[in-house]
């Protein structure tokens, strides 16, 4: 089974050509940097900082804040739903499950593809953030980008923390997508989860560490630590829900 996983992953890559999932991953990475560039240009004073402050880190922090508050939760839900929906839409579960590949290998191949796209999205998003900062530096030296360099360690930490924080939501929505053909329902659930999580964070709900939709925001707020409590729980959700989801799909009547 293990030996077929790379092949299974390759097949999943072949399936996503010309799909919304790819566009969302690539074009979606433009979202937060573009908003920030527009913000800096329309209200330059928000970008003018004293010489003591690292303009890069401030800019990167602000793009991440926009990305996490507005884009990431939807992106993670959508990418899980869109990738799995390819099989529902094409009526291909019956095809996939009569191929000489174990169901576990199919499950893991798709899972790896989704997680790779999420990581790819983060890498592109951060590259574009740096490009956006560079463009602003060229347009107006008063932003102070020339005084410091970006702290790449912080960027990598953001990526690692946010990625782990999204795993809980991925666990829920990967399984859900195999069960629900329609794509609106998961988006509705995600929307409720996101609204609820900002309310719960505001009210300092004591069980917030168990509410997966809040994790990206929690990780952003508690940026100092790594693998703090909710991040471990996020990993736990991911492992448990994937195990259950796989057992479910492998026992279910499919196609």
């Amino acid at each position: 089974m293990l030996l077929t996983i790379p092949a299974s992953f390759r097949i999943e890559v072949l399936k996503i050509r010309h799909t919304a999932a790819v566009w969302l991953t690539l074009v979606g990475a433009l979202f937060a940097p573009t908003i920030l560039v527009i913000g800096y240009l329309s209200k330059p004073e928000v970008g003018y900082v004293g010489a003591n402050v690292n303009a890069w880190d401030l800019f990167i922090g602000r793009t991440w804040q926009t990305e996490i508050a507005v884009f990431i939760p939807f992106y993670v839900v959508l990418i899980n739903s869109l990738i799995v929906n390819i099989e529902h839409r094409s009526n291909t579960w019956k095809y996939v499950f009569t191929q000489p590949f174990s169901k576990a290998s199919v499950w893991i191949g798709k899972l790896l593809l989704i997680q790779s796209l999420i990581v790819l999205h983060f890498l592109i998003f951060n590259s574009l953030t740096l490009v956006a900062g560079g463009i602003l530096a060229l347009i107006d030296p008063k932003y102070g980008f020339a005084n410091h360099g970006p702290s790449l360690g912080i960027v990598l930490k953001f990526i690692a923390k946010t990625f782990i924080a999204t795993l809980g939501v991925s666990g829920i929505h990967y399984w859900l997508a195999t069960r629900i053909k329609n794509i609106i329902v998961p988006i509705g659930i995600a929307l409720m989860g996101i609204v609820l999580s900002s309310l719960l964070i505001q009210q300092q709900w004591k069980y917030i560490d168990w509410f997966p939709y809040a994790y990206p925001l929690l990780s952003f707020r508690k940026s100092e630590g790594f693998l703090i409590q909710h991040e471990w729980i996020s990993l736990g959700y991911f492992i448990v829900l994937n195990t259950l989801g796989y057992l479910d799909i492998s026992r279910r009547n499919m196609g």
């Binding site: 097949i11 072949l14 094409s90 291909t92 000489p100």
Partner: peptide, 20 residues
């Protein structure tokens, strides 16, 4: 069972990888 967003050839390409 066809991936309608892909061409006939790309569909066969997928089948080819499944069956080596």
């Amino acid at each position: 069972s066809l991936y309608l967003h892909l061409t006939g050839k790309q569909n066969l390409e997928i089948a080819r990888h499944y069956t080596r």
